[in-house]
Design a protein around this nucleic acid. Structure first.
Lengths: 173, 173
DNA sequence: GTCCGACCTTTTGACATCAAAGTAATTCCC
DNA sequence: GGGAATTACTTTGATGTCAAAAGGTCGGAC
């Protein structure tokens, strides 16, 4: 019968990224070895952190993308934004915004409202339930993830600085 | 008619993560502000880097997950591995392995072969075409991404070290 | 020997993401 | 004014990921 198999738990006895980097050097790709390690590390770290976040949000019937959208609205003065603005701010595809708002609307956390002056546009507006759930989710994330993100504060802040450099170099903000 | 809209290009005039961190502090969530910035930075950096990688792989009809699977087989001595082993090494769900192998098989890059001794297991085996495409893809990634991943080598290596700490703390290897 | 738990893969269903194309509304500019 | 280019949102289709459950196989305990 079905058992768990689960999303992989067994820790490997070595660092696969370190091993791959050595392989890259061994094949003469010295110039790329470091960058390969950077890219791969980022992928894996993202996977780990996202899993922790989604685990906390799951009991609240939220995913990280939907949580982000809720918080974006929460932080906007009016509690509502045009969908296009949402896409720009969260840096996601317009179709993803449509999809996320569809689901949030089904959950009663957000409401579509016509834009007061531009008839092309639609606003996503937080409902009371949405505002409350956002607060609850934030508390859970603060307590269970953000307070202990996996690195001591000094290292964490350094990581944030390096990632900011990377983002800035890539043309983010 | 359809235009581009594209996957968001406009750079914001400020760092949204820095802003969010200040908001966190302003709301009294000091202990979590740093961790929130770390998690969010990771998400965004991942998004940026993955987009660069997939852009390079797209002309070769590969995605990063399928490329990873190809390289895992390439690096295995026999050029073949049981699907379960693939899942463990790449840290992905069994269903994702099945899906990726399905597609690679359709593309003629990989072949399913019965395990010689364990009749429960199936091996994914690299075809000649798969081996060649993997080499081509690696060359493209080395040239266009890994050689200039977005940070100078010193900072990049430091980033890799910090991410290794994070991964190790999370129970990876 | 047989049986039951553990393991291997697949299938199905829920989400998320992007690309491409369609519809509607707005703005630019001659 | 009026048509072309632009902008806003939605729809559809292809990928990828995880969770849960089903079917087959192995292997050690009794």
């Amino acid at each position: 019968m079905a058992r768990d198999t689960g999303s992989v738990k067994s820790p490997l006895p070595f660092d696969p990224i370190r091993a791959a980097q050595q392989t890259w050097v061994a094949r003469g790709w010295d110039q790329a070895a470091s960058g390969m390690a950077l890219v791969t590390s980022l992928m894996r770290a993202h996977q780990i952190v996202l899993a922790r976040v989604e685990e906390v949000l799951r009991p609240l019937d939220l995913t990280f993308s939907r949580y982000e959208l809720l918080m974006l609205l929460e932080f906007s003065q009016a509690g509502s934004l045009p969908l296009s603005k949402v896409g720009t701010r969260l840096q996601v595809h317009p179709a993803s915004v449509t999809n996320a708002v569809d689901r949030l609307e089904q959950q009663g956390l957000v409401r579509r409202v016509p834009h007061p002056t531009d008839r092309r546009a639609t606003l996503a507006e937080l409902t009371d339930a949405g505002r409350m759930l956002a607060a609850e989710a934030t508390k859970a994330l603060n307590d269970k993830v953000f307070t202990a993100p996996g690195l001591p504060t000094a290292k964490g802040d350094q990581l944030v600085r390096l990632l900011r450099d990377l983002r800035h170099d890539a043309g983010d903000f």
